[in-house]
Nucleic acid binder design. Sequence first.
DNA 1: CTATGTGAATTTATTCACAGCA
DNA 2: TGCTGTGAATAAATTCACATAG
Lengths: 207, 207
Amino acid sequence: MRYHKIPDETIRRLPIYLRGLLFLSEAGQQSVSSRDLADFLGANPPQIRKDFSYFGDFGTRGVGYKVDTLARQIRKILKLDVVHKAALVGVGNLGSVVLAYQGFKVYGFDIAAAFDIDSKKIGRKISNITIENVSNLRTLKKRKIDIGIITVPRDAAQETAEALVNAGAKGILNFSPCYITVPKKVKVITIDIAMDLARLPYYMPSS
Amino acid sequence: MRYHKIPDETIRRLPIYLRGLLFLSEAGQQSVSSRDLADFLGANPPQIRKDFSYFGDFGTRGVGYKVDTLARQIRKILKLDVVHKAALVGVGNLGSVVLAYQGFKVYGFDIAAAFDIDSKKIGRKISNITIENVSNLRTLKKRKIDIGIITVPRDAAQETAEALVNAGAKGILNFSPCYITVPKKVKVITIDIAMDLARLPYYMPSS
DNA sequence: CTATGTGAATTTATTCACAGCA
DNA sequence: TGCTGTGAATAAATTCACATAG
């Protein structure tokens, strides 16, 4: 293995591989070939092998990959091998669901705090998290929280992002349907499910 | 403009452009340059121009693009200029939120039906939709519903997909964290927000 | 003078074919 | 023999530079 710049597309796929490996591991499978994994995930084998090869020789020729070992390697590459604490801002409909969602845990995420601006919500508990006033955001650094999850209405997204960055957030998961500006060192990933749905008809046969 | 195969990446970006244009339109802006739109969306100007150029000459040199006209063009390209009826299967936590979500309407989507397997839920109403028994799925074609939204637990995702395809679905939005197999003519888009969150730490400075 | 539209150059990503190791 | 790892070939996407139209 020689030095290669790692394609962003490879990074985008690693969580998918990890998801599959965790499933196979739960199912008791110990070893998997690139072909089997590809079939399981709807991917293609050379792609998988090349993606892994950027990081080292993870497999055994003639055999395949050890499921658990590979999962651990990917976790490490993605820096998911340490717990990341996150704070959610905006406990409305969507925010409540994200807060209650259990699917983050397996990737090492712990939503450790929730904030809202509505005094009627403050003090209430959802999924064992007490909702705090947004003015408490400044306590994030002290609490070792470095990820922000934005589930406020669109108009408030930019200011929320800025508050999170000021409070020390290094990464932001933005559920508001808009672009937000942050300092370069902060990584933002925006999720807008309507955007995904919106390209479905293009690919659908016109009947 | 000559013939070009249209990149998938362009299709992926069109909804983002549309989102921005709709916002600008609401704000009363009539005209926009590729530079302004790029600034607003966090994109880059030549990219935007090239993307549009695949479909025709939408702009005016020296001036820019007419916001409303361009929005209408993109809608047409994405086939969002007709109403698409969708059926949601699995009215749990996530399903209820998706059902109540108003953000799809602006792109011409109408969640016209909801199904669940739990008899306690059947007959209840959410967002003016009465939850039906999944056995009613076979009525989809008659009701001109051609999009399925899967919000069932992972174990039930594949069978739900098959039921939807049998009922005539041409496109599926899958919220279950797994790959689902369908006939080639059916387009599936899978959304797994944990996948997006999972690549955030990789890009975050190690502090 | 401004901002689009686009061929050409460049960069990035995928696929292929097969050498190499268990 | 089987499946990985990878350089080379191919394909796809982005960026650039600038001719062109308003």
